[in-house]
Design a protein around this nucleic acid. Structure first.
Length: 591
RNA sequence: CGGGGAGUAGCGCAGCCCGGUUAGCGCACAGCGUUUGGGACGCUGGGGUCGGAGGUUCAAAUCCUCUCUCCCCGACCA
């Protein structure tokens, strides 16, 4: 490609709205442009990168028996009503009506349509298993898009779906897809970790998230220093070490003016926050099975712990949680800031207590009247619970649930996920098959997603320096950036550059040829910004020695190549660029 | 939805507090000339509903009201 013809306008300064390096570089290098919040255009260079990633995805999906197809973006509400997600999903689902007034939506994922397709076409065990995938546009009306391509509303996703006769067959297949995911990310230059995760609104029995570890990530990953345990903080458990058992002491009231925080309370009573119980008031929207009613939830966690809303949501089978208002809190007989499970109206509230609280004797808890607390409150004796379970966050320094080692927190970007869905969608959309005996069973289903734009952003976050992007060869928009340094009059240099452009292209290389009438500095800077791995500079100075200059973008190494054998001498460097990706790919796939 | 910040030329910004000719600067863009291996220089030029709508005033980018958009933190996140 000749740069003189390329739709390309580099920016010397990044637009003010871009904070993340990846976002700034994508804009400055002319890969993308934002149209409105969370909605982007891919410009020609960005499109090349996108195609490279899509090619990787196709190759790896095909390797695990995936068959490519494509589903529509605009879908009838009917399918989403059948699965229940028309109601379960909130405003993230972009809803609209067609001209006849029929409810429609833009697909945010395709479990329903896929299950519907299979329901209509597959009816025998002989047809299973099936794996299908697509690389297609998703729309999710995010409340807050952020970080450039990190969280957007419209995006390209590779989503794959597999269908099996039973759980065992899925369990058998799943590791193949899991490995394919590692291969995709590693071939793109990214090392990732796979972690246990929450199922969220997908439903199902088990899920993994593939995380690119990075401080810009929106997810928190809990990892063990001693073993391989890792999980999303939303679901991470930890070993809770209860304090020594003690004889329950008589409960007594204590005057604690102004102590409406745990820290102030522990301070005044000269005790540890671990000796206190914290009350939290939430209102849960319960699931459809529970008639979508609102339920006041009274949570008790130890003062040194944080409530984990995902765990709580799952524990009580809620659709949504919100903080209770002061008025709601008073109605059930509690006092904001001095709330206590002792004496609340059990008829109106659901009391959920973290299991550690029940094993911690003689805690300080609120007295449900301003400026007063109780000492020596004991779960079971002084108040009852509707549910006792783990509802708190794992934190730095907690003990690993597997080996007891020290846990630590790190941020990560979710670049992919896999869900064992079970039969939720098969049953609701009628995807059943007949076995050898003629008995009917719901098809066991799984889905697997990778966000293309987010992956590109992660790659750039990982591979950049102060001058620009440093693409891994596998996903670079072009392999070679040929730069002609000559001013207009130097025909012998131009002739050589033109000849080289032909030769390199002829040799099957993807060449971006800077034939613009620009000064050398501009071309060098644009080349560094765009970040193609191999830069070849053709100029009078080198040609006088019969040489052209090769610069490796990642290492900044320079080599003089024989101008008459550029292809030959370039080859080892190309192979070296590929080699480190191969090394990454060769690493064992973690469990 | 809560908190914070910002909208002035394609990009980066100044001007606003304290209202007053044709709204400025750098980069980018066009023409001419000189330059030509790490973001050149000179001259000339084009490009603006000052986010929008109301209002105050002799006069509004500037003051007031409403509103839209974008960014950041939080909530949310299939």
């Amino acid at each position: 490609m000749r740069m003189s013809k390329l739709f390309f306008h580099s920016l010397r300064e990044a637009p003010a709205e871009a904070e993340l390096v990846s976002h700034q570089l994508m804009l400055r290098a002319g890969l993308i442009r934002q149209v409105t919040s969370g909605i982007f255009e891919y410009l020609p260079l960005g499109m090349r990168v996108k195609h490279k990633i899509e090619r990787l995805l196709r190759e790896e999906m095909d390797r695990v028996d995936g068959q490519e197809m494509v589903m529509p973006v605009a879908l009838p509400a009917e399918l989403w009503r059948k699965s229940g997600r028309w109601y379960a999903v909130g405003d993230d689902l972009m809803r609209m009506k067609d001209r006849t007034g029929r409810d429609m939506c833009l697909a945010m994922t395709h479990e329903e349509v896929m299950a519907d397709l299979v329901a209509r076409s597959v009816n025998s065990y002989r047809h299973l298993p099936i794996v299908m995938y697509q690389i297609q546009t998703k729309f999710r009306d995010e409340p807050r898009p952020r970080g450039g391509m990190l969280r957007v509303r419209e995006f390209t996703m590779k989503d794959a779906y597999s269908f099996h006769v039973d759980q065992a067959d899925l369990d058998d297949y799943y590791p193949r897809m899991y490995e394919a995911y590692f291969r995709v990310f590693r071939r793109a230059g990214l090392d990732v970790v796979a972690i246990e995760s929450d199922m969220g609104i997908m439903g199902g029995t088990m899920a993994h998230e593939f995380m690119a570890m990075s401080d810009i990530g929106e997810d928190t990953i809990v990892q063990c220093r001693g073993c391989t345990y890792r999980a999303n903080r939303q679901v991470a458990s930890f070993r809770k070490d209860p304090p020594p058992a003690a004889e329950p002491l008589p409960m007594e009231e204590v005057h604690t003016p102004g102590t409406d925080t745990i820290a102030a309370l522990a301070d005044m009573l000269d005790t540890d926050t671990a000796q206190t119980a914290k009350a939290l008031f939430l209102v849960a929207l319960l699931s459809e099975q529970d008639q979508n009613r609102e339920q006041f939830v009274f949570c008790v966690v130890r003062g040194d712990m944080e409530l984990n809303e995902t765990k709580l949501t799952n524990a009580i089978n809620a659709v949504h949680l919100r903080p209770a208002t002061e008025a709601e809190i008073r109605v059930v007989g509690a006092e904001p800031g001095f709330g206590s499970p002792v004496g609340v109206d059990r008829g109106q509230v659901m009391v959920v207590v973290d299991d550690l609280v029940c094993e911690s004797p003689n805690l300080v808890a609120g007295a449900n009247r301003p400026d007063w607390h109780y000492r020596n409150v004991n779960c079971g004796r002084d108040y009852g619970a509707d549910l006792v379970t783990d509802i708190v966050n794992a934190d730095n320094g907690h003990a690993c649930p597997v080996c007891g080692g020290e846990l630590y927190l790190q941020r990560g970007v979710e670049v992919g996920n896999t869900f064992k869905l079970g039969t939720k969608y098969s049953e609701s959309l009628g995807a059943y098959y007949q076995d050898e005996k003629g008995d009917s069973h719901p098809i066991v289903m799984a889905s697997y997603g990778i966000g293309v734009g987010r992956l590109i952003a992660c790659i750039i976050e990982n591979f950049n320096d102060e001058d620009g992007i440093q693409w891994p060869l596998s996903v670079a928009p072009y392999q070679v950036h040929l730069v002609c340094l000559a001013p207009a009059g130097q025909t012998e240099v131009w002739d050589k550059a033109e000849a080289l452009y032909g030769e390199l292209s002829e040799a099957g290389l993807e060449v971006l040829y800077d034939d613009r009438q620009e000064r050398a500095g501009v071309k060098f800077n644009d080349a560094d910004l765009v970040g193609i791995p191999l830069q070849i500079a053709v100029g009078r100075r080198g040609l006088a020695q019969g040489k052209v200059e090769l610069k490796l973008r990642r290492s900044s190494e320079r080599h003089m190549l024989d101008a008459d054998n550029v292809c030959g001498e370039l080859n080892p460097h190309l192979q070296a660029e590929q080699a480190w990706l191969d090394d990454l790919l060769a690493l064992p796939v973690p469990d």
